[in-house]
Structure formats: structure tokens, C-alpha cells
Simulated scan of single mutants.
Amino acid sequence: MNYFRTALLLAAMTALFMGVGYLIGGQSGMMIALLIAAAMNLFSYWNADKMVLAMHHAVEVDERQAPEFYHLVRQLAERADLPMPKVYIINNPQPNAFATGRNPQNAAVAATTGLLDMLSMEEVAGVMAHELAHVKNHDTLIMTITATIAGAISMLANFAFFFGGNRENNNPFGFIGVIVAAIVAPMAAMLVQMAISRTREYAADRMGAEICGQPMWLASALHKIANGAARIHNMDAERNPATAHMFIINPLSGERMDNLFSTHPNTENRIAALRDLASRMGNVGGTSGYDQSAREPARTASGPWGTSRRTSSGKDKGRHGPWG
């Protein structure tokens, strides 16, 4: 049902884009719009992942630079029957993560330093399993296409005031068509884009929970990430709001309502769905869904990335984490 719904929404987005072209320039405008969309999607198909990673200053790491994190992603990729993706870390205090790439063979997963600092190993496993579910479901490509078409619709809408009301440009609806193209169409495109994002997030939650074997790991992680995102600003995301739908939790605000204008489902609704899944799986915590043999035997409250460097007063004696 989720795939069917996504297909319908993608069809609606495409039809809306062609409709804007028709409102601006009739049949010739519709064909020009289609050509523009094809060119933009072709460019996005090959370059969107690099662009998004660059926007957020993501740094690629390997098993020498972030051994536990890299090992965790590799094990989860094996469990998901996926090729090993590229692994990135973003130096940002807000806990968050996203996946990108046009297909599983060219995928990348990225996590912020805030996420790696604040979450336990199990919670990080839940988050990365969610991102790998997006890769497995080809959601990264779907979200790139919808974002590109939505941007193209906004671009065409800007042309509407200059060219849409002229009968010489074959606009069949005159000024009314201009108003619809310039105001209504971009809002409709935004709503369709959000609906697609929200549909895919629920599907990735479910598959991610199945990949890591523990729905409550992801549920706990979502709770912590939502609280962190609500109080810690992500300036790169604020400068590039078009990428907000890619993150596991909206990085722009601590949105609580699962309403028409939300890029993500309500976090409490997602957690409730994961609790229900855990109940049906007969698994509400407990044993690990991945090999823990690589974990360091001595580990304290500093998190999953090594022994504590905190003094009794709670102050750090030095840097810790998978990157240093």
C-alpha cells in the first residue's frame, strides 16, 4: 500500500508540473516543462548525492577513522543484503542522520557528531538501519526526484507573472491561469512532496526495525533525536531547507503536529507504530540484533565509542568519539 501510495503521489507531482506548463503556455508550454523536468532529473540523478553531502560538510570516514561506527554500518548492510555504502560524519551538534545516493550501489549514509555523542550503540544501530532501509527501498532516488520537480514547479511559477497572462503565449486561461500557476501550484507541489516524505518515513521505520531486529532501539533513538533537534539549531539545514526531508527527523524545527505542512510524521506516532511492531515481534528490548564482538569490553557512560574521559565532576578531559 505504501508503494502504491507513493506511485500515485509521484504521478500527481508529474501531472502538476505539466499542468503548470500548460497554464503558462498551453500545449507548447507543457512540452517545454516536460523537457526541463527531464534535464533537471538527469542532472540530479548523477549529482544530487554529492551536492547534499557538500551542503552539510560531510566528511567520509573509513574503518581506521571510525572503527566502531563503520563496523556497525557494515554489519547492518550485510543484514539488509546491501552493498557497503560510503560512510560520512557531519561535524554538527544536532543529533540527526540521512541517506543519499541514486541506488544501493552508489549509496551513502551520514550521521552527525551530535547523534554519535548522544545515542547509545543500540540506538545508533536503529538509526542507521532506518537509513539503510531508505537505500533498500530506493527512497533516496524518489525523494531526489520529488524535490527536483517541486523546485522546477516553483521556477516555472516565477515565470508565470511575466509570460503566463499573454494570449500570444497560448495561455488558455488568461489571468486566472497565471494565479493558479504562480500561487496554488507551488503550494500543491509542497504538499505532495511532504506526503511522499511522510509515507516513506513510516515504511523505513518498519524495515529499519526489521533490519536491526529491535524496533525499540529505533523508537528510543527517535525520542532523543526529536528532543535534540528541537533545541539545537542545524545551521547548514537552515541554509538548505530543501534537504530537510532527507533527515530522519526534521532538522529545521521540533515540529510536534502530524499536520498537512509537516515534512515528517509526528515522532510520537512513529514511536507508537514501532511499539506495536515490537509487541507483534515479541521483542521489546533485550538481545542485540547485530554482532557485538567488535565492541570494546570496558565501556562507561560516555557512549558507545570508547572508554570515558570524564572526571568525577562530569567534565571531559579530552575529545572522544569515533573520529578522534
Rank of each mutant, 00 (worst) to 15 (best):
L119W: 07
D81L: 13
A77M: 07
A54E: 15
E68W: 00
A108D: 07
R64G: 11
M118H: 11
M51Y: 11
L76M: 15
I89M: 14
G126D: 10
E63I: 01
N91G: 03
P85K: 01
M128E: 03
V87R: 03
A58S: 04
S44I: 03
L119H: 07
E63Q: 11
H56C: 06
E63A: 13
Y70V: 13
V73W: 02
L116K: 11
V109L: 00
L82H: 04
V124M: 10
A54W: 10
A133E: 07
D81C: 14
V124K: 07
D49L: 00
H138P: 00
L115V: 10
K50V: 09
M40E: 10
W46K: 12
P67N: 12
M118F: 03
T112Y: 08
F43N: 12
A66N: 02
E131V: 13
M128D: 07
M84D: 06
T140G: 01
N137P: 13
H138Q: 02
E122K: 12
D139V: 15
A37M: 11
T140V: 07
I90N: 05
Y45R: 08
A66F: 05
M128I: 15
A39S: 09
P85L: 07
A110R: 13
G101K: 00
A58Y: 06
M84K: 10
N106M: 09
L76K: 12
M51L: 15
A58N: 04
N47I: 06
M143C: 01
I89G: 05
N41C: 01
A110K: 12
Y45M: 03
L53T: 00
G101P: 01
Y88S: 02
H130E: 09
V109W: 02
H57F: 10
A129M: 02
A110L: 14
F43R: 14
A125M: 07
A39H: 01
A99D: 08
S44F: 11
T140D: 02
H130K: 12
A48M: 14
A37D: 15
A48F: 10
D117Y: 09
R102C: 00
L82R: 05
Q94T: 03
G114Y: 13
N92R: 15
F69T: 08
Y70Q: 05
G126R: 13
L119I: 05
L119E: 01
M84I: 05
L42F: 15
A133F: 06
A108G: 12
T140H: 05
G26D: 13
L82D: 03
H71I: 10
G29P: 09
L42D: 09
S28L: 06
M51A: 13
I89E: 11
N103P: 06
P104T: 00
Q27T: 11
L76D: 13
